[in-house]
């Protein structure tokens, strides 16, 4: 059995009187320490799948198993604990708390975790040692995203989920962020899942999951992932 398994997962939204099927019988599995890139057009169900995996959304039917735990069966409290300790989340728009400085944003995460890393160390790791006292509004997009990544990895999660981390960034900065994520995955042996609509970055991953029409259409295993620096798009 894989580290993460998605088995026949369905997700339906109700928008008023209309039912939208976001996920339709999706199946995939991910091994521990893998760097996975999820690609697909908008509305294909990538984010829904990621949210379900991160314990931020529920399934309509199916099974989601992470490290032997049935996530879809977790109670509210357990779900919170799961989010708190097992998951690190990086958002497209960073989602930093504007009232808190960079380091405080990291602390916001570490303060609720048991085995968290030292915020200062993590800040150093993401290369923002000198900017940690700055407020998000004082930081550039890339810096903010780095803070967000720092916040996610400071929790020392089992799973780092990134939803379009470079979507709001320029090419160069995006590359830096992806590099950071790749490095983290490699160094910390962390399972990292990156959603992107940019198929070009797929070669950096160990596994590529292609979404289409609410289902994982194609799962490719990249035997020779390349470093981000070498990828051009």
């Amino acid at each position: 059995m894989s580290y993460i398994e998605f088995k026949n997962v369905c997700k339906e939204y109700k928008m008023g009187e209309i039912k939208i099927k976001a996920l339709d019988n999706t199946n995939f599995s991910i091994e521990k320490g893998e760097l996975v890139v999820v690609v697909g057009p908008s509305g294909a169900g990538k984010t829904t799948a990621l949210n379900i995996l991160g314990g931020m959304d529920t399934v309509t039917s199916g099974e989601v198993i992470v490290d032997g735990k049935n996530v879809e069966k977790l109670k509210n409290k357990e779900l919170i604990k799961y989010r708190r300790e097992d998951i690190g989340f990086v958002f497209q728009f960073y989602n930093l708390v504007q009232n808190l400085t960079a380091i405080e944003n990291v602390e916001l995460a570490t303060q609720i975790c048991k085995d968290s890393l030292s915020p200062d160390e993590v800040m150093e790791k993401v290369g923002l040692k000198d900017r940690k006292k700055n407020f998000p509004s004082q930081l550039s997009g890339g810096e903010q995203q780095r803070v967000a990544i720092a916040r996610a990895i400071a929790k020392n999660p089992k799973l780092l989920l990134c939803d379009e981390p470079t979507g709001a960034l320029d090419y160069k900065t995006g590359k830096q962020i992806l590099k950071l994520l790749q490095d983290t995955a490699r160094k910390e042996n962390m399972t990292v899942i990156i959603i992107t609509h940019n198929a070009a970055i797929a070669p950096m991953a160990d596994k590529i999951i292609r979404f289409k029409n609410g289902t994982a259409e194609k799962i490719e295993i990249n035997e020779n992932p390349v470093s981000v620096e070498t990828i051009e798009w």
Binding site: M56, I80, K81, R83, E85, I87, F89, L108, I112, K155
Partner: peptide, 16 residues
């Protein structure tokens, strides 16, 4: 709303 969502995603409970 987003901040609440973020906090929730970070693993904060309702009370917090």
């Amino acid at each position: 709303r987003q901040e609440i969502g973020t906090l929730k995603a970070l693993g904060y409970n309702k009370f917090h």
